[in-house]
Amino acid sequence: MEVRTIKVFTTVDNINLHTQVVDMSMTYGQQFGPTYLDGADVTKIKPHNSHEGKTFYVLPNDDTLRVEAFEYYHTTDPSFLGRYMSALNHTKKWKYPQVNGLTSIKWADNNCYLATALLTLQQIELKFNPPALQDAYYRARAGEAANFCALILAYCNKTVGELGDVRETMSYLFQHANLDSCKRVLNVVCKTCGQQQTTLKGVEAVMYMGTLSYEQFKKGVQIPCTCGKQATKYLVQQESPFVMMSAPPAQYELKHGTFTCASEYTGNYQCGHYKHITSKETLYCIDGALLTKSSEYKGPITDVFYKENSYTTTIK
């Protein structure tokens, strides 16, 4: 009895394709271990004539594949690729409408935090270190965002349907971005203890939790000093293409032309909904596939993004 075979390709990165001759009487799992086709788990399936010449994702289970996976995804987590594939199996079914010149995501599976993050990423200057993220990001900007969303979920250790947080998501993504040249110098002034300067680099240099107003941050924000008295913390120097200011959701007025974009969060910790506000020729609110415009805006804002380049204080 002759062994019926077909020729397929296996890959971990969709760049390096490895030619395989597979036995049609055995499952993919018996031949390769966990195997995925377009995100779908085909591990328990036997090869079919229609699979001839198709590319299958496999887990990096030998040295060659491990090197290829690390170079593309910059992670050695053995569960990463499987999590990416199972997320992709959902995100490829989502709709990605162009809204006001940006790629958004039609609401499904509690994905409003991903839509808000995706919209924000198209408006701030950011370059990702893992080629996987950078490639998928370019495709997302062009309207094909399924891979990018699935990668975000995998890097953030999230599953489809789980509630997510924009600030946490951005923080994970910033860790995989090139923020080497970003720098922030802060000064804390206390009447009792004097003053202390701190220099922050990388992710810490672009994120701040405690106030939404970048102007206020430049002037000074009140913080408790270690001595128990009130101290003032203010920005001395900022070198970065953008800054992200966050605070627990509270009524906040966004003035046209003073910011790049913002995240609105309605609801409580267990259950809520994100919308995205962007400042173009007027203010726009993007909620999944829905767009509304207004000249002014007041609502429960939790993150505001500002364009920056270089700032030095005039406070002496």
Rank of each mutant, 00 (worst) to 15 (best):
142 A>S: 13
31 Q>I: 15
249 P>I: 03
3 V>S: 12
92 K>C: 08
112 C>Y: 03
108 A>Y: 05
285 C>Y: 03
143 G>M: 04
273 H>A: 01
33 G>E: 05
154 A>K: 00
176 H>Q: 13
161 G>C: 05
140 A>R: 02
20 Q>Y: 11
175 Q>N: 08
218 K>S: 05
163 L>I: 03
191 K>M: 11
122 Q>F: 04
2 E>T: 15
225 C>N: 02
135 D>F: 09
126 L>P: 08
58 V>P: 05
81 L>F: 12
83 R>M: 07
213 S>Q: 05
148 F>V: 05
94 W>M: 04
304 V>E: 00
262 A>F: 00
310 S>Y: 13
30 Q>G: 07
199 T>F: 08
284 Y>L: 10
12 V>T: 13
280 K>Q: 12
234 Y>G: 01
86 S>H: 05
123 Q>V: 06
8 V>Y: 05
135 D>G: 09
116 T>S: 15
244 M>S: 01
219 K>R: 13
141 R>P: 05
195 Q>L: 13
248 P>S: 09
145 A>C: 12
180 D>A: 12
103 T>K: 04
76 T>Y: 07
180 D>E: 10
129 N>M: 08
73 Y>Q: 04
287 D>N: 03
138 Y>I: 10
96 Y>K: 03
73 Y>H: 02
38 D>T: 11
189 V>Q: 09
267 G>D: 07
305 F>N: 00
12 V>D: 07
269 Y>N: 11
266 T>R: 08
97 P>H: 07
34 P>G: 10
87 A>C: 07
209 M>V: 13
147 N>W: 08
18 H>I: 12
134 Q>H: 12
26 M>N: 07
5 T>H: 15
211 T>N: 13
214 Y>S: 01
222 Q>P: 14
277 I>D: 00
241 P>S: 09
296 E>G: 13
150 A>D: 02
190 C>E: 01
258 T>M: 14
159 T>K: 15
81 L>C: 08
61 N>Q: 12
44 K>G: 10
124 I>W: 00
303 D>W: 01
224 P>Y: 15
82 G>T: 13
135 D>Q: 13
180 D>H: 15
297 Y>H: 06
217 F>P: 01
64 T>V: 11
211 T>I: 14
172 Y>C: 11
22 V>C: 15
6 I>W: 08
168 E>T: 15
7 K>S: 12
250 A>I: 15
108 A>M: 08
162 E>W: 02
29 G>T: 05
53 G>H: 15
291 L>T: 13
244 M>T: 01
212 L>Q: 05
63 D>W: 08
148 F>S: 02
94 W>S: 04
218 K>Q: 07
164 G>N: 04
61 N>W: 14
291 L>K: 06
151 L>Y: 05
281 E>V: 03
3 V>E: 12
14 N>L: 07
261 C>G: 00
118 L>S: 03
231 A>L: 04
223 I>E: 14
202 G>N: 06
75 T>F: 05
118 L>P: 03
124 I>G: 04
13 D>R: 04
128 F>P: 03
294 S>Y: 13
165 D>R: 03
37 L>P: 04
232 T>D: 06
303 D>S: 04
130 P>C: 11
74 H>G: 11
8 V>A: 14
300 P>M: 15
310 S>L: 12
232 T>V: 14
255 K>F: 08
263 S>F: 02
31 Q>C: 13
291 L>P: 05
263 S>G: 01
249 P>G: 01
188 V>C: 12
105 I>T: 03
49 N>K: 15
239 E>N: 14
89 N>E: 13
197 Q>G: 07
68 E>W: 00
163 L>D: 01
307 K>E: 11
20 Q>I: 15
107 W>E: 03
37 L>F: 12
211 T>S: 13
107 W>I: 05
224 P>R: 13
276 H>Q: 03
26 M>V: 11
287 D>R: 01
283 L>P: 00
256 H>T: 09
137 Y>D: 04
159 T>R: 14
316 K>F: 08
196 Q>F: 14
226 T>P: 14
149 C>D: 03
149 C>K: 02
56 F>I: 09
86 S>Q: 15
34 P>M: 06
211 T>H: 07
54 K>P: 04
227 C>V: 01
229 K>L: 13
174 F>T: 02
104 S>A: 07
18 H>Q: 10
46 K>M: 07
212 L>C: 10
182 C>M: 05
205 A>F: 01
